[in-house]
Design a protein around this nucleic acid. Structure first.
Lengths: 209, 209
DNA sequence: GTCTATAGGTTGATAGAC
DNA sequence: GTCTATCAACCTATAGAC
């Protein structure tokens, strides 16, 4: 399984996460993967198709796991808490990211980069997630005006994306205070923070003069 | 004031925000600014120096405003609430970003991109912010283990950065539900969410077997 | 200060031998 | 499937006329 194609995918994943898609040259990838430059265009057709393949390989399993966890949580409607819904959203991506070194920033980049790449991913995977998680949030007892709910979901995704993007530098940034070896602990902190934020009282808007 | 130098800065700001630093060529900038290609290297010395100038122009005022607002809040120690501290952190950047169309994604990108650019900005501006805001948080009544506090600050910055990065596409992404014309309203929502998150009870960590 | 012209390097992609 | 060699297009930066 350590054939050329896989080695290219592995190297591309690391470098895309570290430097972004457009700043990563095919030459950098083939050097890191120790394969020939032409191998990229043989196994994939273009750099764009390689990007798709890199995303495809990781996002599919995470999306499936998210929906699985949500299924489990929703199987017991009475016990469906806000925390369980948020955990189903956050845990799969955090665990996947922490399990494979260098994967986190790529995941974060996908969530935090608007434009062509996000749309490509969003339309293909996130639509299913959104259509399942929004109703689940409501069923879990969240009572918010639609606009407020959308903003708070946005804040939540931002927290999650930020954790992933900064994962490689987090220990250094915090002077060793924050470590990443325990993905479960990170998810727990994130869930506690976001659940409390979701339950915050809705600010009354002042009337304009 | 609409001289060549300013036109370059304006165009660079827009394009850096939209496509990132490395994906934006000097040609794209000079075309957008309707100036000659060589003007960039005349007025600035290099692309790297241009990036610095673009950042410098916007971040300085925001940093000053942040510290000003914190000064005002801390002038009345009894009334120093968590909300006021978070607002002093978030409001200046949101208001600056919303005031100038196209500026938001650049601000978000600065906050959400680790690596050379963040370090350049972080060391020059954020160190002052951090050294003032962390103590202010404690004085406002936050009682958290240092590790937990750092994580929650990280979550908060992530929410803020995400709002900025996605500002241009937020209305479309929410099917028109979330608009950006009222920066104050966004800050209020963000403050409510993050303050509640900061006040969340600390999750008890399970002992490892 | 503004321009043209160009140097010198890197990129993605491909043709064709093995 | 893997390689070398190469193309055309792009990039940043600069030299030098005006």
């Amino acid at each position: 399984m350590s054939d050329t194609k896989t080695r290219i995918l592995d190297a591309a994943e690391q470098l895309f996460g570290r430097n972004g898609f457009e700043s990563t040259s095919l030459r950098a990838i083939t050097t890191e993967a120790q394969v020939n430059l032409a191998a990229v265009n043989y196994h994939f057709q273009s750099k764009d198709a390689l990007i798709d393949a890199v995303l495809e390989r990781r996002i599919g399993p995470v999306t499936r796991r998210r929906l699985e966890m949500l299924d489990v949580a929703e199987a017991d409607p009475a016990g469906l808490t806000l925390e369980k819904v948020i955990e189903a959203f956050a845990a799969p991506v955090v665990e996947a990211a922490m399990g494979q070194p260098g994967l986190a920033p790529l995941m974060g980049r996908i969530m935090a980069t608007p434009g062509a790449f996000l749309e490509r991913v969003f339309l293909r995977y996130m639509e299913a997630v959104k259509s399942r998680f929004l109703p689940a949030l409501l069923r879990s007892g969240v009572r918010l005006p639609p606009e407020e709910l959308f903003w708070r979901l946005h804040f939540m995704v931002g927290s999650l994306a930020h954790v992933l993007v900064f994962a490689p530098v987090m220990p250094a940034m915090s002077n060793g205070l924050c470590q990443l070896n325990d993905g479960r602990a990170i998810v727990n902190r994130l869930v506690a923070f976001c659940a409390a934020g979701m339950r915050a009282p809705v600010e009354q808007m002042e009337k304009e003069a």
